[in-house]
Structures are given as structure tokens and as C-alpha cells.
């Protein structure tokens, strides 16, 4: 339990720093920017209270906002992410999973296909919301769409890489 908490705090700090110092400077073709910090919401234990999911999402977004100059955009998005992630996790969780032990989402407990589908669902929703809020109008909807698709693809790559690294140990 303590180990899980410490490891999640470590990921939290790592992901915020990664976003502020590296990912925020990546703009492939001026569109695709990876937003891998939602990996933190993905790997929260399945038995985390839902209000804590939302609160952690908000704090994560606020820190991302402070370091990336996007006041309110990431906070609003990750708060919504905190609401949606448990639902999606429940949707993609293995059917034969024992209800009594907490589900720690990873490729170990969920297999690659289920975990990637779960990650893709969260990422695409997250990116769509993020770029809609950033643009804040629908006149540039093709741009928003390209942004969303490009960034989602990059983010999923990052998440898959994180999973590989995390399960190496």
C-alpha cells in the first residue's frame, strides 16, 4: 500500500517535470504535442475513491497549467479526466478479475490489448477536450481535430513506453 503511494507520487513529480521541460517543447509539424501526464490518472489503483481521482486530476492539471502557461485549460481537462477514468477502467477491466483485491492498472493485470484500449479511450477524450478548451471556438475545428489525433498518437506512444519501462523491473 505504502509502496504504491510512494511510487505514484514519484510518477506524479516525474510526469509534471517531463511535461514542463520536454513535452511542452515538442510540436511535430506544429500540431502534435504529447500530453503524457494523464498516465498518472491511468495507473491510479482501481479502488481509489472517485472524489480523490477528481481532486488528484485537478491538482495535476493545476501544476501543468502553472508550468506550461495554459491557465485553467489543463486543470479543467484533467478534472474531467478524473471523473471519466474510473468509468473507463471499469469498462475495460478484465471480466474475470477478483473484486476483492484492488486493480492496479498495468499491462500485467490487464494484458496489452485491454490496457491500450483503456489508455487510448482516456487519451483521445483528454486530448479532444484539451484542444477544444484551448481553441475555445469551433471555427478551427479541422485544426482541433488534427491536434487531437496527432497528440493522442504521440501520447499513446509515450504511455506504451512508460509501461515497458515500468514492467521491466
Amino acid at each position: 500500500m505504502i509502496q504504491t503511494v510512494v511510487s505514484r507520487i514519484f510518477w506524479f513529480v516525474l510526469l509534471v517535470l517531463l511535461q514542463a521541460l520536454v513535452c511542452n517543447h515538442i510540436h511535430i509539424l506544429g500540431y502534435a504535442t504529447p500530453l503524457p501526464y494523464i498516465y498518472f490518472l491511468l495507473i491510479l489503483p482501481g479502488n481509489t475513491p472517485r472524489w480523490l481521482y477528481i481532486l488528484l486530476g485537478f491538482v495535476l492539471g493545476l501544476l501543468i497549467d502553472a508550468s506550461c502557461n495554459t491557465p485553467g485549460v489543463a486543470a479543467a481537462t484533467t478534472t474531467a479526466g478524473g471523473l471519466l477514468t474510473p468509468w473507463l477502467l471499469h469498462l475495460f477491466a478484465p471480466k474475470d478479475y477478483d473484486e476483492n483485491t484492488p486493480l492496479l492498472p498495468s499491462v500485467h493485470t490487464m494484458e496489452w490489448s485491454a490496457f491500450l484500449r483503456f489508455a487510448t479511450a482516456v487519451t483521445v477524450l483528454h486530448c479532444l477536450l484539451f484542444f477544444c478548451l484551448e481553441a475555445f471556438n469551433l471555427f478551427h475545428w479541422p485544426d482541433v481535430l488534427i491536434n487531437t489525433l496527432g497528440s493522442s498518437a504521440l501520447t499513446i506512444l509515450f504511455i506504451a513506453a512508460f509501461e515497458l519501462i515500468r514492467n521491466e523491473k
Binding site: W51, I54, A80
Partner: peptide, 13 residues
């Protein structure tokens, strides 16, 4: 909690 935090986020926004 969600509604409250979203309200805060949008105020920031």
C-alpha cells in the same frame, strides 16, 4: 467535487 473543481478550473480559464 467534480462540479466544484470544474468551476474553479473554468474561473481560472
Amino acid at each position: 467535487v467534480f462540479l466544484l473543481l470544474e468551476a474553479v478550473s473554468f474561473t481560472l480559464l
